[in-house]
Nucleic acid binder design. Structure first.
Lengths: 349, 349
DNA sequence: CTGTTAGCGCTTTCAG
DNA sequence: CTGAAAGCGCTAACAG
């Protein structure tokens, strides 16, 4: 098991020669050991370890086989955000479960939101793509589709030729919104960004159809229906748009809302992180939950249980696994994932 | 921009023919656009979009260039644990930062702890490897080294021919142990596993040299020195070994310790997660912190600040970035990362 | 069980 | 600025 350190790459042909067999016998030794006699196999392995051959070159093998045994995951602008969002991390874990089981690798594709995203997609040596929820106008979608490999979008948008794995965000928002807004007079929504520009604003119920993130759009639509079901006009519902999905920004914006002349008495957020920020702002402002302010989150993360948040439960991990199956070409039918409302003490119902 | 959906893969040669240029002109159009006339380039791009050619095949390109522009990350047994440990996630984010900047992908390699790990390493189409802290006897290390590509281990063990990025765990443990054990009579340690078998046990200060995880070994050695510095023999220090790094198991084991005839009055843990579990157990047992029980964590995670834990601060994100640089072959100097003690209310000093 | 042939799709020479 | 040749390292397909 020695090797001249730093040596040039050893090839299968050299191993075969050293072992005194044909290249194919050497190849079979690695790929179909059963087809090779015990004797030949041990000669090949001896030659390999003598030469310091670690096994067939992965790139050459991929080229020849036409398959890389790797799945590509596009996590959206700023790759490192992916690892800051606990739900995104659960989703990755679900993909990892399936990949580990199949012996596949998973390549995280570094998307920056800039123009060079497309060449990066194009350059990815993967057998299939999984795209984390994005906007209708994201050029990454066309780039992925152009690769002509199995592809799946999580959340949305729905793209022809790509699978979609998602819950029914509108129905879930309608359901949790109904709980959040029950008995409220001035409901508000803390929202994810409306476009890839990620601008923070506070508006009143605007034109939902203009929202470019389909997941956000569907949830707003569900909240709208919930508000109207509670007898409140959508134009009277304050929408606080946060640039990012984190507790800190939500806390700031909630503090602003609560300090206004007509503070909200119910806030439906789009994540438990955001809802946690709202809860902190409410405490700081001396508001009682749920009597002065009802709050709902989304995802049923650990923090939701800790804070007693009413929320929408869904399994990002299972959805990640479903996406992996789709990207492997194993799932023929579209996946509608399940969700449920978890009622806790942060709402009046 | 049309294409017969589901068509066979289009090659660069076909594009070149369609454009009426040589294959090399087409290739240059993608790789060195400056070397191609405006006219030729637009003919090539027109032909490409007409044929639905998405760009050079990544596998073929990797084979020819001898480089995949991808880094491999080995996260240790059970890939999905990687995503459950917030510090591991920070580490990944640090790698992601560098990869995104360089236009590299990062492939997470699915390690299961079983025998098929080695072939999976061998099959990885990557330019360099980053190995998350593991045990001395992990066969993955030899497999990575056999690949003869730039490789770096985070934490440990130190392996000849591979870089090491780590803090000085022994010194840090000695320092935080000194704070934890100050004024204590019966110190205890809540430890990570001692071997890859991941067995939970409660013992008293045993033979540290037998511990197979070097990070754990170094920390135990530091705690030993701290205990002896406080006048306590190592054999009198209770070591509670947890199979996994989570709050729940630490809480259970701490509850057991606190219910014993001679309960500890100081517990040094190996992570903030574990320390959080200890704090919960102490509260449940009606112990005051730090008067009845001093507690220290490790990593200075968010939970450490929330609970007021004295802990060891280190930046896994920076260490991830340092590993990425090393795996890219950019490493100027061996990396010894920095750490510091953060004193909060969970200790007597 | 073993071997021969024929490329996978691309880009590095090296010449125009 | 453009092109012809050569072959990266490997394995599917088909003989023996």
């Amino acid at each position: 098991m020695n090797s001249s350190a730093g040596s040039k790459r050893v090839t299968l042909a050299q191993v075969a020669e050293q072992a005194g067999v044909s290249v194919m016998t050497a190849s079979y030794t690695y790929n179909q050991p059963d087809r090779v006699s015990e004797q030949a196999r041990s000669k090949v392995l001896a030659a390999a370890s003598q030469l310091g051959y670690a096994g067939p070159d992965p790139s050459a093998r991929s080229l020849r086989r036409g398959s890389t045994r790797t799945l590509g995951v596009v996590m959206g602008e700023h790759l490192s955000y992916a690892f800051e969002d606990p739900e995104a991390v659960s989703f990755l874990a679900g993909i990892a479960d399936v990949c580990a089981d199949r012996g596949y690798g998973m390549t995280i594709l570094p998307i920056t939101g800039a123009a060079d995203d497309v060449p990066r997609i194009t350059a990815a040596a993967v057998d299939g793509f999984i795209v984390w929820t994005t906007s209708d106008d994201d050029p990454v979608l066309a780039a992925v589709r152009a690769m002509k490999r199995p592809a799946v979008v999580h959340g949305g948008p729905a793209v022809r030729g790509m699978e979609l794995v998602s819950i029914d965000n509108r129905a879930a928002a309608r359901a949790v919104g109904a709980v959040a807004f029950a008995g409220a007079g001035r409901p508000a929504v803390v929202s994810f960004p409306l476009s890839r520009a990620r601008i923070s604003t506070i508006t009143s119920g605007g034109d939902i159809t203009e929202v470019l993130f389909p997941v956000t759009r569907e949830r707003l639509e569900g909240y709208r229906q919930a508000a109207e079901g509670a007898g409140i006009a959508w134009r009277d519902v304050v929408i606080a748009v946060c640039a990012r999905n984190d507790a800190a920004e939500a806390e700031r914006v909630a503090a602003t809302l609560l300090a206004s002349a007509e503070p909200p008495d119910a806030i439906a957020a789009m994540s438990d992180q955001q809802a946690a920020g709202v809860v902190h702002a409410a405490r700081a402002a001396g508001r009682a939950i749920p009597d002065d302010l009802a709050v709902t989150g989304w995802d049923d993360a650990a923090v939701a249980e800790r804070l007693g948040l009413t929320t929408v439960a869904q399994s990002l991990r299972e959805q990640g696994a479903a996406c992996a199956h789709a990207a492997l070409g194993e799932k023929p039918n579209a996946q509608t994932a399940s969700w449920s409302i978890v009622r806790r003490g942060s709402t009046r119902q």
